[in-house]
Computed example of a mutant assay.
Amino acid sequence: TKIKDFSFKFYADKKKAEVSLDIEMKDEVFRDAYYNKIWSLEDILKDFIGDFHKEEFYTLENGKVISRIWVEKEGISVFNKNTWREAFEFFVEKMDGFERFYYEYEDFIKDV
């Protein structure tokens, strides 16, 4: 994204897979501004990635508070080879949607 602490991420564990947009700025004013920019495009984002979850104050395992927008797919395990293809297809589809959304609205998002 070329925006510091504003990144797309993949995550998988023994129960699910996730693709997220993590807004991790330490300065709450900037984190809030970027989150609200994305949130103002909610309906458009939904067109790109489908239904999603959002949390303005998401707490990571290490205690750090970030803003996160993500999609997830249950029933996928990194320990089960039978679900790897499904996980890969999910990652490709959702990351592509996030990236297309970002590139389409990049100038608007970056104007903070």
Score class of each variant (00 low, 15 high):
Y11Q: 02
I23R: 02
D32K: 13
V92I: 14
K9G: 13
Y58L: 06
D27G: 00
V19D: 09
E106F: 07
Y35H: 02
W84H: 11
E89D: 14
Y34V: 00
S67P: 04
Y34H: 03
I66N: 13
K64W: 03
K26H: 01
K14N: 03
S20L: 01
D47I: 06
A17W: 03
D13E: 05
F91E: 09
R100G: 04
F52P: 01
K15L: 06
A12H: 03
Y11M: 07
K15Y: 10
V112E: 08
F10H: 14
G63F: 04
E28T: 10
K9Y: 15
N80E: 07
F48N: 04
V112P: 00
F88D: 14
G97T: 13
Y105D: 05
L60W: 06
K37I: 05
F30W: 08
A17F: 07
D96Y: 13
D111H: 07
L45I: 09
S7A: 13
L41K: 11
I38C: 06
F79Y: 02
E18Y: 03
G75I: 04
E61W: 04
E104K: 15
E28K: 12
E93F: 03
V29T: 11
K9L: 12
S7P: 01
W39L: 15
I38K: 01
W39H: 11
M25H: 14
K46D: 11
G75Y: 04
E93W: 03
Y58T: 05
V92A: 12
M25V: 03
K2T: 12
D51E: 15
F30D: 02
V92W: 10
E104H: 12
S40P: 00
V65P: 00
D32P: 00
V71R: 09
K2I: 12
D51P: 06
I66H: 11
F48A: 01
V71C: 14
M95R: 12
N36G: 03
K54R: 15
S40Q: 09
F52Y: 14
W70T: 10
I3L: 14
Y58S: 07
N82Q: 09
W70S: 06
F98M: 09
K64D: 12
Y34S: 02
G97Y: 13
F8L: 15
I49R: 09
R31P: 00
I76L: 10
K37N: 08
E42N: 12
W39Y: 13
F6C: 01
E18C: 09
E28F: 05
R100E: 15
K37M: 06
K73V: 09
F48I: 01
E56M: 14
K110Q: 09
D13Q: 03
Y58G: 05
M25C: 02
D27F: 01
D51H: 12
E61C: 00
K14G: 00
E72I: 10
D22Y: 01
V92G: 02
V78L: 09
G50H: 05
M25A: 11
F88A: 14
V65F: 05
F52N: 02
S40V: 10
D22P: 00
